[in-house]
């Protein structure tokens, strides 16, 4: 029997809450390493931050991949009600959500084409910890250097080497988000 859990956990004032959430997403994507809080949504089994990003960026035009561990019947119902996003395998996804381990192997995801590098996946990576320490980041959006507790460095270096192709990642933990676009150079701490 269906539950009503899928019907709750959305924005109560979508235009304003989505606008505030997007500004946070814009700030963190423009300034890699910057961490910003977002609030207002709760999907079953996800962090508040990941739920907000889904509501702010995904809809029926964005094929979404739910990785093992995050994928559940309850979440599928929530996605169907709030987003209407088609659930697809990793290879077809415009957005993909899961833990770092569950999203691997990353080679499956779309990295854009030489003529349309924007047609690449955006990963939403659920993290246990998100802090301004660890890997050293340089590149567009960073005045000198920034630090972010990335799950690893090698995958981000390989991704950056593909520039202007490659995927872009949001990191979510509790109510916090951070981001790492493909343009950022990553060095181990």
């Amino acid at each position: 029997m269906p539950t009503t859990e899928a019907l709750t956990g959305g924005f109560s004032d979508a235009p304003v809450q989505a606008a505030r959430a997007f500004r946070a997403a814009l700030e963190v994507m423009a300034r890699p390493g910057h961490i910003a809080p977002v609030t207002g949504a709760q999907a079953p089994g996800l962090s508040g931050a990941a739920s907000v990003l889904l509501l702010t960026l995904c809809d029926r035009e964005t094929p979404l991949h739910l990785a093992q561990g995050s994928d559940s019947a309850a979440l599928r119902d929530w996605v169907a009600f709030h987003l209407g996003a088609p659930l697809v395998p990793a290879e077809e996804a415009m957005f993909a959500l899961g833990s770092w381990a569950a999203l691997a192997p990353l080679e499956r995801f779309r990295i854009g084409t030489a003529e349309y590098p924007d047609r690449a996946v955006t990963l939403i990576v659920e993290m246990d910890r998100l802090a301004p320490d660890g890997a050293r980041l340089t590149g567009p959006g960073i005045a000198t250097e920034a630090r972010l507790s990335l799950p690893e460095t090698a995958a981000f270096q390989r991704n950056n080497a593909l520039f202007p192709l490659g995927w872009d990642a949001f990191f979510t933990c509790g109510d916090d988000i951070a981001a790492l676009p493909r343009s950022t150079k990553v060095e181990a701490a």
């Binding site: 235009p15 814009l26 702010t56 690449a120 955006t122 343009s183």
Partner: peptide
């Protein structure tokens, strides 16, 4: 609606802005 555009349109524009930031100048 807040700031004139409907929410679906704003999401579409927001996704384009984020990809634009990820590939500066493209």
């Amino acid at each position: 609606n807040f700031a004139y555009l409907d929410e679906q349109t704003k999401r579409m524009i927001r996704r384009a802005i984020l990809k634009g930031l990820a590939v500066p100048g493209y």
